Deep mutational scan, measured.
Amino acid sequence: MDALKSAGRALIRSPSLAKQSWGGGGRHRKLPENWTDTRETLLEGMLFSLKYLGMTLVEQPKGEELSAAAIKRIVATAKASGKKLQKVTLKVSPRGIILTDNLTNQLIENVSIYRISYCTADKMHDKVFAYIAQSQHNQSLECHAFLCTKRKMAQAVTLTVAQAFKVAFEFWQVSKEEKEKRDKASQEGGDVLGARQDCTPPLKSLVATGNLLDLEETAKAPLSTVSANTTNMDEVPRPQALSGSSVVWELDDGLDEAFSRLAQSRTNPQVLDTGLTAQDMHYAQCLSPVDWDKPDSSGTEQDDLFSF
């Protein structure tokens, strides 16, 4: 819950932080000083300027060897085509990944977070970031790969997607708890209302004896509580940590079903599988986004697919 609360507080303090972009060759504004600060901008989305290598189908939802083989196929196909790589912007948030063309600003792909089953910074092609997700059109699994400016960037994108998945799962947990509370309150309110109706004398007997209905007592009954809980029953509950912020979080049926399955089948359902080692994760978390744009010590960066 700490990640969720800190993310909400950060967004309320400075929503404009989320509009910064990394990996864009110096076009961005001043960047936060450390990885923790940038992680807090996830709610509205972190932007990464990358190059799209392509996509291939895979048979399993996750796995280092599986993704490595898929990336190898994608890279080989991209090299064989001889075409310049498409420059894209990857927007990562707890909602998922939005992929747009840098030149036309046209939407290429919009992947809900619950469809993503794996992401990684490839070991062999260490400047490549990739994720595996279920197609929104059918049940097939797709591996999408992107060329980053350097290994640090690939690791940073991988960690960002993993963190977005974690925050999304926490949102789901909060929403589920809130819905259970509202359902319980609604049920209790309905029981109270039913009890009051059972003990209320029939209207005919009131008229016969000349008694008047006590409207004041009726007004004191917990009807307002019942209506408050039943009027918006169809509205999706939102985490309290975000009250007053500009973010509107809505959970669709697909996300609810997917996270429910994860909660039942996995020990740590909030953790998205990645190909990063503990050492890689520690190294990337210690980086400032400013470091992502620094040239690798191995030599001059080449803006070309064939540089790796």
Rank of each mutant, 00 (worst) to 15 (best):
I98E: 02
G25S: 04
L262T: 04
Q270L: 03
V75D: 00
R238G: 07
K5S: 11
S245N: 11
S93P: 01
H137N: 15
N211Y: 07
C119R: 00
L272N: 05
H137Y: 14
A284T: 11
A185F: 14
S67Q: 06
L215V: 12
V247R: 01
K179F: 06
T230Y: 07
I98P: 00
P269K: 03
F306M: 11
E109M: 06
D304W: 05
L255Q: 07
R39S: 06
F169M: 02
M46D: 11
A185D: 13
P295I: 09
R151A: 15
L31V: 12
A164W: 09
S175G: 15
A70C: 08
K19V: 10
Y52I: 07
D256T: 04
F165Q: 02
K19H: 12
S112V: 02
Q106A: 06
S186Y: 01
D304L: 05
Q285R: 07
P201H: 10
V207L: 07
A18S: 14
Y114P: 03
M124S: 08
E33C: 10
N211Q: 13
V207N: 07
A18K: 11
C119G: 15
T200R: 12
F48M: 12
Q173K: 11
R182F: 12
W172Q: 02
T100H: 09
Q197N: 11
V271D: 10
D234S: 08
T149S: 15
D198H: 12
V167F: 15
T277C: 08
L53G: 00
V92W: 01
S135N: 14
Y131K: 01
L4Y: 06
R29Q: 04
R238M: 08
D303R: 05
Y52H: 12
E180N: 13
V248P: 11
M281L: 09
L159M: 13
L213P: 15
H282F: 14
Q163P: 00
N229S: 12
A68Y: 01
E235N: 05
N105A: 06
D191C: 02
S175Q: 05
L90Q: 00
T104I: 10
Q270V: 06
G54K: 00
L203H: 05
F171Q: 06
S243V: 08
S175V: 09
A133L: 11
G244V: 07
A80I: 08
F48D: 01
W292R: 12
I116N: 00
E40V: 03
Y52W: 05
L272C: 07
L11N: 13
Q20F: 12
S93Q: 14
V247H: 14
R115D: 04
L66N: 10
E40S: 10
Q134D: 14
T41V: 12
R9S: 09
S297R: 10
K204I: 08
H144Y: 15
G244Y: 13
A185M: 11
T100M: 09
L262P: 05
E177C: 14
T38Q: 13
Q187R: 06
Y52L: 05
S297A: 12
A208Y: 12
I98S: 01
E33V: 15
A219E: 04
D183R: 13
L85G: 00
A156V: 05
E40P: 14
C143L: 08
V174L: 01
T225N: 14
A78G: 07
E44R: 14
T274D: 12
L90Y: 00
G299Y: 14
L50P: 06
K79H: 09
K79T: 13
K220E: 15
K30N: 14
R266Y: 02
K166D: 03
R9L: 15
A18C: 10
E250F: 03
M124W: 05
K79E: 06
A78I: 07
Q264K: 11
R9H: 14
D122I: 01
D183F: 13
Q302K: 07
D296M: 04
S245D: 12
G96Q: 08
Y283L: 13
R95V: 15
N138F: 14
G54H: 00
C286M: 10
W35A: 09
D296I: 03
A263G: 03
A133G: 13
P295R: 08
G189I: 01
S245Q: 09
Q279G: 06
G189W: 02
I71V: 09
S224L: 03
E216R: 08
E301M: 06
Q155D: 13
A70K: 01
V92T: 10
G275W: 04
C148F: 01
C148I: 00
L223K: 07
D126Q: 00
P32Y: 12
K84Q: 12
D296R: 05
D291N: 12
K127A: 00
G25P: 12
V88C: 05
G63V: 10
A241R: 09
L193K: 08
L159G: 12
I113L: 02
N232M: 04
L141H: 15
L251M: 11
W35D: 08
R266C: 01
A80E: 14
K204V: 05
L42T: 15
P237T: 06
R182M: 10
S67W: 01
R39T: 10
P239L: 14
L193I: 03
G190Q: 11
K166T: 15
L159S: 15
K79P: 00
E257Q: 08
S81P: 01
G54W: 01
F146L: 04
I113K: 06
D291Y: 15
C148A: 04
T89C: 05
N102M: 12
E250N: 05
T277V: 10
G189C: 02
K176Y: 04
L215E: 12
K5Y: 12
P201D: 03
K179L: 12
W35N: 03
I97F: 02
R39W: 04
L57I: 11
A185L: 12
L50D: 01
N102G: 13
K179H: 11
P237Q: 15
T149A: 10
S81E: 11
T100F: 05
Q264W: 05
Q270N: 06
E235G: 12
E33R: 10
N232W: 05
S135V: 05
P201F: 02
S288L: 07
G63M: 04
L159V: 06
L4W: 06
E177K: 15
